[in-house]
Nucleic acid binder design. Structure first.
Lengths: 148, 148
DNA sequence: GCCCAGTTGTTGAAATGTGAACTGAATTGA
DNA sequence: TCAATTCAGTTCACATTTCAACAACTGGGC
């Protein structure tokens, strides 16, 4: 089958996308480093903080932060040894494990959040024309939408 | 200083962005795997193939593919042992090293490219409204633009 | 009850990535 | 000229991620 190559314009945009994403991640990670967090850990804290009783099943959390189960196991172990989360057995399913955010973890999130939001603004939100930012949202929703 | 939180809408878009990027990378990587490549290696091959005599200085290449110099050293070593690239001393600057694509490397790129382009289409280009795709380009250019 | 395919989470080793030294070469400028 | 600085690339030590294997458990179907 004849490949449907990208047009020059499509290719330009695709490369901008790769560059932009890399730029954003780089910034977010360096600006979280002073708090001893990376973006993956930060997102874990966010999702826990938004859950009932600051608690989520491992596999549920894994899906929300888009980490493999194995990766999450390691990440949570590290965060546990830093005192940011704890593991407790899940009462309803004896296979299950709940990750709970500790008070220390919550406080770290509270401390880091303002700086992080500022990073997201400086790296992306405040740089982009509002209409284009809306379009970016629609584009990324289309990407995530299940169709196949 | 009072943090400038994101609006609910901005936050929604920001999270779509994180999800979308993850989704795209995941797909590209799994669809390159049959060729024994990941996106980082693929991009190295692309940039070499677009250069004069299929050759680039290490630090130049590092910048183009957004890898740290250290990381590129490792990546190129791996690719060298797979026979995809070679290292040769740079004649004009004795500190320098050129990475050159081998015939094997070029052939692998030729083989992988149609599948990869198809992945980029299925994951992003063909899913997004053309106007939104244009806007995505402008947004990512704004992100990359040096201003600070 | 018993089977068994599927799920959950962990493990440990191998692969990959990171950031700080470090080596040798080029450049600067007094 | 030559010491000081910067630069290119690698190396080292370590952190993180991936992958395949595994043990424990669940929820049907029979």
């Amino acid at each position: 089958m004849e490949p449907r190559w990208l047009s020059a314009e499509q290719q330009r945009i695709w490369r901008s996308f790769l560059n932009g994403v890399a730029r954003i991640n780089e910034r977010l990670d360096t600006e979280l480093r002073p708090f001893g967090l990376d973006l993956g850990e930060y997102e874990i804290l966010v999702h826990l903080s938004e859950s009932e009783r600051h608690l989520l099943r491992m596999s549920d959390l894994a899906e929300r932060v888009r980490q493999s189960r194995s990766r999450l196991t390691h990440t949570i172990s590290r965060m546990e040894s830093k005192g940011l989360v704890k593991r407790v057995a899940c009462p309803s399913d004896r296979r299950g494990v709940n990750a709970i955010m500790t008070a220390t973890g919550y406080q770290l999130l509270v401390d880091a959040a303002p700086s992080h939001v500022e990073s997201v603004r400086r790296a992306l939100v405040d740089r982009v024309d509002p209409d284009d930012f809306e379009a970016l949202g629609r584009a990324m929703e289309a990407v995530t939408r299940v169709t196949d």
